[in-house]
């Protein structure tokens, strides 16, 4: 058990190191843009993992949360000239409040109803963003959202910005590990495992679910803010239901409830459209088939492959030890 967990930490570290090395070999704006999006996705999915991965509550509202994070930071920094550092904190606070608000309807609902409610929330955010043209710019979008600097280093290139969010992602990953391995993580997993037993143990299931929702919303809003300042431009066209579903796909493909799985899912699913681009018209269908195949044949995600491979290795080494 312990060594399995330590191996996962080593893999996480290795993946981060690998990502950090990519710009050295592929310093091309196209790749760097994908890398940025990949790491932002990772942060969002670390959050989604709390509510959908660990606690088992479906959440199709990620696009709405992400959008609110993006607009909050973009509008405050652009219109009021506040430092993006402050406005990103404001985004996280908005995420906190949203999580509280979204958590409540989730209490009475399960399954399809919960999915639809979170989806409706996300759509409402998008519709507001589309129609409040004076504030959000609607589908035309908001332009020239400022970048910022870390100390004396201005994050004026995508490569610099990438290293900044990579550090952020590592911090968020560590935070996720801390929480997952704590009594709170245990409560999340307990809710997914057997809802009916929780309350008889003196634990308030509503508080647990709201806590998981809130964490997801804080991570998601933060991801949205990082995206806004990366892209410099946001439009309501980006925050569709497709985006919410994409995050659930990342979670599923990587392996639900597993932080290393979240990372692998983000990497694979962000790269996939780029790798499949050569298929032209057939890209969409191929993408869908691959996702479907992953759900059918690897219901526990790519991370379960790792478990199987390690299992084979372990068996072999046990067998060798026995001889």
């Amino acid at each position: 058990m312990k060594t399995a967990r330590r191996n996962q930490y080593l893999w996480m570290g290795a993946l981060f190191v690998f990502l950090a090395l990519v710009p050295l070999f592929a310093d091309n704006n196209y790749y760097i843009t994908i890398l940025n999006q990949m790491v932002i996705n990772m942060i969002v999915v670390f959050g989604l993992n709390f509510i959908t991965g660990l606690t088992g509550q479906m959440n199709l509202g990620t696009a709405g949360i992400y959008a609110i994070g993006a607009y909050t930071s973009a509008l405050l920094s652009k219109n009021f000239g506040l430092s993006p550092w402050l406005t990103m904190i404001a985004s996280v606070c908005a995420g906190f409040l949203l999580g509280r608000g979204l958590g409540y309807p989730s209490l009475k609902m399960k399954g399809v109803y919960l999915s639809l409610t979170t989806l409706a929330f996300s759509e409402i955010v998008r519709i507001f963003a589309t129609n409040l043209i004076d504030i959000t710019g609607g589908t035309q979008g908001l332009k020239s959202i400022p970048r910022f600097s870390v100390g004396w280093i201005a994050l004026d290139t995508n490569t610099k910005y990438f290293y900044f969010i990579l550090v952020v992602a590592i911090a968020m990953c560590l935070l996720s590990i801390r929480i997952t391995d704590s009594k709170w993580g245990r409560e999340f997993r307990a809710v997914k495992d057997n809802q009916d037993a929780i309350e008889s143990l003196g634990l308030d299931i509503r508080r647990i679910k709201i806590r998981a929702f809130t964490l997801a919303a804080m991570y998601g809003a933060f991801g949205g803010a990082l995206y806004a300042h990366f892209n410099g431009y946001i439009t309501s066209l980006s925050f569709t239901t497709d985006l919410s579903i994409n995050y659930v796909i990342i979670l599923m493909v990587g392996g639900i409830g597993n932080i290393l799985g979240n990372m692998i899912g983000s990497i694979v699913v962000t790269l996939l459209p780029e790798l499949l681009r050569f298929l032209g018209d057939y890209y969409q269908i191929t993408y869908c088939i691959l996702v479907l195949a992953s759900a059918l044949f690897l219901p526990d995600g790519l991370i379960s492959l790792y478990g199987k491979v390690m299992g084979v290795f372990n068996k072999r080494s046990v067998a060798e030890g026995g001889e």
């Binding site: 409560e187 997993r189 307990a190 495992d193 008889s200 143990l201």
Partner: peptide
């Protein structure tokens, strides 16, 4: 405190984890 006629444990977790959750409200 109670136990259930049809066991309601956290079946994917270890025995120790199940017990720890039982003591967590304290």
């Amino acid at each position: 405190g109670r136990t259930f006629q049809n066991i309601k444990l956290f079946s994917a977790m270890t025995v120790t984890e199940n017990l720890m959750i039982g003591g967590q409200s304290k």
